[in-house]
Design a protein around this nucleic acid. Structure first.
Ligand SMILES: [Zn+2]
Ligand SMILES: [Zn+2]
Ligand SMILES: [Zn+2]
Ligand SMILES: [Zn+2]
Lengths: 142, 142
DNA sequence: GGTCTGGTTGAGATCTTGTCTCAAGATTTA
DNA sequence: TAAATCTTGAGACAAGATCTCAACCAGACC
């Protein structure tokens, strides 16, 4: 999986006339080590902590490339920060979030995705990503 | 409708030992003139444009009071700003948000709502509210 | 090799959204 | 009236994110 994603990433860079630099390589690799969600400064801190001098600006600059190539995707962020998660084998999914214990249940429903397409097409709106979250109580917390 | 909301607002202020000041009155009134969605600086700008000297801090400070009294509710954020909308006759709806011009298109789809119910039921998850936003480019911004 | 060209980077400035501080003015209470 | 309490405006501040710019690097060209 990671291999295919790396190819997509390299292809995007190539398509844009950009180089697969040391920094862009390291950022890709480091993300593969993160289990689930992350925010950009958290990612930057990992480099800083390891003594690698990759600048904050570069990390921030690389995020759009990772997003566009599908290596990562926007994740359900609760607060001020943008959160991301690496694209996993399951591909796109949405979230149910327990407001009590913060448990996250992922779901994916093709019908909903198709309806979204239909609706946006009808409004001539070109969707680049979406955020669909159901808040409430998980089985244990009811 | 607006009258009942104003009463709720006044009651909340009273309950909290706060005064129904000129500024708090003007902010309530101005919101009634806004068709649907707004963000706080947008509201502030309306006063500035009209030459009314109500400070940004006061507008920001009043928002929690309006929220708590039910005069307004959180609405779609565009990913950066918090958006609000006044509580009114309009029922539940979701949003498409243009990431370029910030235009908001509302949509409502019973099938999606029903599928959400189905999915959450299947996971024994009790949904209290949801947030469904499609981000992208409106017709003009493509 | 040396030079030109243009992508890339780091450091810090800047912008954006929202909160907080504090002194002055207004209001209520004693 | 004086003291206590609210309220406000202006601007400082904070956090997240983006932008600027000079130095740097890599390939193209001579
Ligand atoms: Zn989805
Ligand atoms: Zn729970
Ligand atoms: Zn909905
Ligand atoms: Zn709306």
């Amino acid at each position: 999986m990671a291999h295919r994603l790396k190819e997509q990433y390299k292809e995007l860079l190539d398509k844009k006339g950009l180089t697969y630099t040391f920094e862009r390589k390291r950022i890709f690799e480091e993300i593969q080590k993160i289990s689930v969600h992350f925010h950009v400064d958290g990612l930057y801190d990992r480099f800083k902590k390891q003594g690698e001098r990759i600048s904050r600006a570069t990390v921030y600059r690389t995020i759009p490339l990772l997003l566009e190539s599908g290596v990562i995707q926007k994740s359900a962020g609760n607060g001020k920060r943008d959160f991301f998660e690496k694209t996993n084998a399951k591909g796109h999914h949405d979230h149910m979030i327990c407001v009590k214990c913060e448990k996250i249940i992922e779901f994916h429903n093709e019908k909903i995705e198709a309806l979204q397409d239909e609706i946006s097409k009808h409004h001539k709106f070109k969707v680049t990503f979406h955020d669909h979250r159901l808040f409430g109580y998980c089985q244990k917390c009811q």
